[in-house]
Design a protein around this nucleic acid. Structure first.
Lengths: 247, 247
DNA sequence: CGACGTGTTGATTCCTGTCAATACTCGTGG
DNA sequence: CCACGAGTATTGACAGGAATCAACACGTCG
């Protein structure tokens, strides 16, 4: 069960950590006020299910902190994670009242929720909100298509290396061309990595061992990973370009 | 090279076959008029490359007829189709001037193109356009995530059966619960199916043979496929539900 | 210290990819 | 109308990578 977090219940949007990147990023003070009136915070512990596929979901919202996963489960138990929600990412879909996937908190999670119907009304009346949501959806779509290549054509080693690079980039923060070693704190267990990469947890483990043996990474404990050779990891990931295309 | 198709150059939006489902679906007469002023048609022959990844693309647009594919190619030649554009689907991304993927005409194609900058301006000023594009992007995102499950967790047989079902549903048209046999005209070669499903063309061929042997489909010539047993095909596709969740 | 969840490693199997040969389609031209 | 040929599709033999099944180790917490 989700519970209202009293410490966050009246947090002002102005000092919100995800203000600059969330769905509200383009909103002005006035629009923000309207959002504030329909928002509430919900907290979930790691492992909690937020909604299951097919259930009604009467809110949409942004991840303030923590990590959530979207995943599909087939009748026979096969599972595929189809998305990872990090802070500022948006959960739920305007115009649809039932969840298309299971949404699970992977790390302790705080969601900034908006009542769905009220949000939809606001969306129709607020171009800044709609435009931001469009840009976010298009970014997600690009990321999802990028993932197709990984799922369809990359080897197990390339998949694991790719995931480590993605996490290193988004979580590492301080990683730059001048910093050869980046330490990251994996938000995922081996099983969750396997769900995301469409591998088994054994294969993930073997590939991590392989990357460690090749001195591309160092592992400390279950969660700590230090990237020793970012260029080598990029090569192991089968990445063609470092940065993508210029705009 | 694309060429302007004189027969379509002045087609009125009112009688456009994709009027009801394309990005302009929500636009009123006035808005349609503004779109009409910045639009032009382009035709491409099957096999033609519309843009390559990284190239500038000075227009966005809707598929009027035909089929196009979005695909990624890795340096070593591995390829993955990441999207299929059918009539009414939208190509290109507002806010980005370079293509993220190769866009290739798979069947003779007609595009209704809008100059990119002009379209972006119109998008900012036309909530009906923005909202429709948002809905389309969210639909695409759902479809892309559905595809993750297929790419990551389905067997070769399930992949091929899934694709046939998708094409049967979108292309067959007349297929209903009362019609047990549906004939479809595959818009894709075996190789293209393989690119889309992340298989090899040999494996696709073997699976089609297997489905044929099991009397789920019949094959006539290179492109003709008749679905003999839709329920059996659904089962072979590993689909859990027939229709998805209610709204 | 002991136990359970998590992670690692090993042996084996099986699906799909690879390489290779053959058959089929369909358009072209004799 | 049929023969030809290039592209496309099917089929076969074999190899390889990841899944599966099965122990075992680690480490975190009671």
């Amino acid at each position: 069960m989700a519970f209202q977090d009293p410490s966050l219940a009246h947090e002002a949007c102005g000092s919100c950590p995800i203000r600059a990147r969330a769905v509200c990023a383009r909103c002005d003070e006035d629009e923000l006020g309207r959002l504030e009136r329909i928002k509430s915070y919900r907290s979930y512990a790691a492992g909690q299910t937020i909604v299951s596929a097919g259930e009604r979901m009467e809110f949409v919202g942004s991840v303030v902190s923590g990590v959530a996963a979207l995943s599909h489960t087939m009748e026979d138990g096969r599972r595929q994670m189809v998305g990872l929600l990090l802070p500022s990412d948006f959960a739920g879909r305007p115009g649809r009242s039932r969840a298309a996937y299971d949404v699970i908190a992977i790390a302790d999670l705080v969601l900034c929720c908006f009542r769905r119907r009220a949000f939809e009304d606001l969306l129709a009346a607020t171009p800044n909100l709609a435009r931001r949501l469009l840009d976010m959806a298009l970014d997600e779509l690009d990321a999802a298509r990028e993932w197709h290549l990984l799922l369809g054509r990359k080897t197990a080693r390339e998949k694991v290396a790719s995931l480590l690079r993605i996490i290193a980039r988004r979580g590492g923060g301080a990683a730059g061309p001048g910093r050869p070693a980046t330490t990251i704190d994996l938000p995922l267990t081996r099983e969750q990595m396997a769900d995301y990469l469409a591998l088994t947890l054994e294969t993930v483990s073997r590939q991590i061992t392989g990357l460690r043996r090749d001195r591309l990474i160092a592992v400390t404990g279950r969660r700590g990973v230090t990237v020793l050779d970012m260029a080598g990891l990029a090569q192991a990931a089968g990445e063609e370009r470092e940065g993508g295309y210029p705009v």
